[in-house]
Design a protein around this nucleic acid. Structure first.
Length: 291
DNA sequence: CGATTTTGACCCGCGC
DNA sequence: GCGCGGGTCAAAATCG
């Protein structure tokens, strides 16, 4: 199975505008714009509700983050050395910091309940995220708010791009690790696989101005602080545990979320809707002149 | 000068 | 038992 992939950073959103053979009346256009405005208000309300609920549940997060860590099977050799498991608890940070901390998907679900998930053999699942970066960016750096130290790089058999290995800068007290590799199919996508859990607060929360969108269907994070569009998608929340090794499924899901997000962003942008209305009305006037 | 990155060597699990 | 490949180590190089 080999999906033909569109570069997510250059997705072509076919909105079917101007392709209909039906005549678009001025009244119909006005109705359509009103519907768009209503949809925009509805979406803003949903986002506000999500943020409010998250702020209210951060107290539960504090309890969850102080739970003992699950033993990571990531490195057997390392495990022998990491006997010092000094546990830190989060007792500080701004409310924004704490809210952003909720992004650690393995610890909390939408209801604030602990949802650290384990495979049948008792080992924790790896968390995979995708980040769109500039194709010319070869740094393999994924900004997730934590400080990482690179400790290795390998070229793997199934992907010509090198794979970078990172461990948390707070190691050995923190056992969190991640590996980052450029997608073999989409060169602008960095695939980051996280293992282990951080036992400390996020030292540098990513973009306070960043928009967080996590609901049952769209657990992703937008980072407008970088020059490129960065969308971090947590597939564990997508109910794709059983398909965690199916890269095609992951990539298709990623593409779907990107398309939905871009379409949603456009319809919420008053500049876009104004420009759209202007373009359509201009087209209508042009058609009337021709007739 | 300490922290971080690079990179070749080594370790270890797994399939044959 | 052997070879392969992913993951880690650690010395050297680089950076701030």
């Amino acid at each position: 199975m080999d999906h033909e992939w569109t570069n997510p950073s250059t997705l072509n959103l076919d909105l079917n505008i101007g392709q209909s053979t039906d005549f678009i009346s001025a009244g119909g256009l006005k109705t359509k714009l009103n519907e768009l405005n209503q949809e925009k208000k509805r979406l803003i309300n949903i986002i506000e509700e999500i943020h409010t609920a998250r702020a209210a549940s951060h107290g539960q997060l504090m309890d969850i983050t102080s739970l003992p860590l699950a033993e990571s099977s990531f490195s057997m050799a390392r495990k022998r050395k990491m006997e010092s498991t000094e546990m830190n608890t989060c007792n500080g940070g701004s409310s924004v910091d704490r809210i952003l901390g909720v992004r650690d998907q393995s610890k909390i679900d939408l209801c604030g309940h602990s949802c650290k998930r384990f495979r049948e053999d008792g080992k924790p699942y790896a968390r995979t995220t995708y980040t769109i970066v500039d194709a010319s960016d070869s740094s393999l750096m994924v900004r997730d708010g934590y400080q990482w130290r690179k400790y290795g790089q390998k070229v793997t058999k199934d992907n010509p791009s090198p794979r970078a290995y990172f461990r948390c800068s707070y190691a050995p007290s923190c056992s969190a690790k991640k590996k980052v590799q450029r997608s073999a199919k989409v060169k602008t996508v960095l695939v980051a696989t996280y293992k282990g859990e951080h036992n400390h607060c996020r030292p540098s929360p990513i973009g306070i101005t960043g928009a967080m969108h996590e609901d049952a269907s769209h657990p992703y994070f937008l980072s407008p602080t970088s020059s490129d569009l960065t969308i971090t998608l947590d597939l564990k929340r997508q109910g794709l545990y059983s398909n965690v090794h199916d890269k095609d499924t992951e990539l298709v899901e990623f593409q779907r979320v990107v398309v939905e997000k871009m379409a949603s962003s456009l319809t919420k942008d008053p500049n876009f809707t104004a420009a759209l209305a202007s373009a359509i009305s201009g087209r209508i006037q042009h058609m009337q002149v021709q007739n």
